[in-house]
C-alpha cells in the first residue's frame, strides 16, 4: 500500500504538471515554471556529481553557459536547424566536460572545488572577452525558438512549457534509474570513501569521469533550452552568481536526494518571484538560509522530510529493539 500511495502521488503530480497550462490564469506563471524547470535540469546535473559522487563542482554555471552559447552561436551565426544545434550544443558541452573532468578529477575535495571555481571563471572570462565570437557583454540576440517537429510548433508559452517539462521528466527518470542501479551504487561508494571504493575493485577515475560528463550534459542541455526560451544570452549566465544560485536550489531542496533539485528550484524561484521587492537583496535572506541549512539540515528539505518519515516509522516499529539495544550495551 505504501508504494502505491507514493506512486499515485507522483502520477498526480505529473498530471497536474501537464494540466497546468489549462489552469494557469496567464502566461506569467507558465513562464516562471518553464524557467524553473530549466534551472532544475541543471541542478539535477550538479546533484549527480556533487550529491551522489561527492565532488562539489563550482564550474557548472560555466557548462550551462557553454550549452547556451553553443546553441546560440550555431543557430544565429551558423544558421543551423534548432534541433541539430541542440544536439550539437550538448555534445560540445560533453566534449569540453570530458577534457576538463579528465584533469579536474585528479584533484580532490577543496582542490576540486577551487579548481572548478577557477575553471568556471575562465569560461566566464572567455565568453566575456572573446567579442569576435560571442559579442562579449552585448550578448547574443535573436536566438530562435525551438523549430517545429512536423505539425507541432513551439511558438506559444504553453508549448514551450510542455517541451521543457518533457525534458525535465526525462532527466529525472534518467537520474532515478542511475541512482537505483549498480552504477549509482558505485557513485555513492566513491562519495562515501574513495579508498574503500578502490579496494572493492571500482575504477574510481572512470566512474567519476562518467558522472562528471553526464552532469555537464545536463547543465549544457539546460543552457541550450534556456537560450532558446529567453532568446537572448549574455556572459552573466556563466557567472559565479548563477553558480551560487544553482547551488542554493540544490542545498535547500536537498543534496543527494532525488526530489531535492526540483523542490529547491521551484520553491526558491517562486519565492524570489513573489518577493520581487527583495530581488536585489534576496541574498540577505538566502545567504544565511544556506548556512543554517547546511549546519542543521545538511540534506535539505527532502532529507529532513525523509528523516522525519523514517523516525516516525522507527518509533512504531522498533521500540522493542531499542530497549534490547540499550541492554546489550550495558551488558
Amino acid at each position: 500500500m505504501k508504494i502505491l500511495t507514493k506512486r499515485n502521488g507522483i502520477i498526480a503530480l505529473i498530471i497536474f504538471a501537464f494540466s497546468f497550462p489549462f489552469i494557469a490564469q496567464n502566461d506569467y506563471y507558465l513562464h516562471m515554471l518553464t524557467l524553473s524547470f530549466i534551472w532544475a535540469i541543471a541542478v539535477y546535473g550538479i546533484n549527480l556529481l556533487s550529491g551522489y559522487t561527492g565532488y562539489l563542482s563550482l564550474a557548472h554555471a560555466g557548462f550551462f553557459a557553454i550549452g547556451a552559447y553553443s546553441l546560440g552561436l550555431l543557430t544565429v551565426k551558423a544558421g543551423m536547424n534548432f534541433w541539430l544545434a541542440l544536439v550539437c550544443a550538448c555534445l560540445i558541452t560533453c566534449a569540453l566536460g570530458f577534457l576538463i573532468g579528465l584533469i579536474a578529477l585528479r584533484t580532490k575535495e577543496h582542490f576540486f572545488a577551487i579548481y572548478t571555481l577557477c575553471v568556471g571563471y575562465i569560461i566566464y572570462l572567455v565568453i566575456d572577452k572573446w567579442e569576435g565570437l560571442t559579442e562579449g557583454v552585448r550578448g547574443l540576440i535573436g536566438i530562435p525558438a525551438p523549430g517545429n517537429i512536423g505539425p507541432i510548433t513551439f511558438d506559444t508559452a504553453a508549448s514551450q512549457y510542455y517541451l521543457v517539462l518533457i525534458f525535465l521528466l526525462a532527466v529525472i527518470l534518467i537520474v532515478y534509474r542511475i541512482i537505483r542501479s549498480l552504477t549509482g551504487r558505485t557513485y555513492m561508494a566513491i562519495r562515501n570513501s574513495e579508498d574503500l571504493a578502490q579496494t572493492i575493485g571500482i575504477s574510481t577515475m572512470k566512474n567519476k569521469l562518467t558522472a562528471f560528463v553526464l552532469s555537464t550534459f545536463f547543465a549544457g542541455l539546460a543552457g541550450a533550452l534556456y537560450a532558446s526560451f529567453i532568446r537572448f544570452i549574455g556572459p552573466d549566465i556563466g557567472s559565479t552568481a548563477i553558480m551560487f544560485d544553482l547551488l542554493m536550489y540544490l542545498l535547500v531542496g536537498g543534496i543527494g536526494t532525488l526530489s531535492g533539485p526540483l523542490v529547491g528550484t521551484l520553491l526558491l524561484v517562486i519565492l524570489s518571484q513573489n518577493l520581487q521587492f527583495l530581488q536585489e537583496y534576496r541574498m540577505l535572506i538566502f545567504g544565511p538560509l544556506l548556512t543554517v541549512i547546511i549546519i542543521f539540515y545538511p540534506r535539505g528539505i527532502a532529507g529532513a522530510f525523509f528523516d522525519w518519515q523514517r523516525k516516525r516509522k522507527d518509533n512504531t516499529l522498533s521500540g522493542v529493539r531499542g530497549e534490547l539495544h540499550i541492554k546489550a550495551e550495558e551488558g
Binding site: I174, R177, T183, I200, I202
Partner: peptide, 15 residues
Amino acid sequence: VGHRLRTKSNLVDAI
C-alpha cells in the same frame, strides 16, 4: 556494491 567488480553493466544499462 562489493560485488560490483564482478559485474559488467554500465550507464547505458542503468538508463
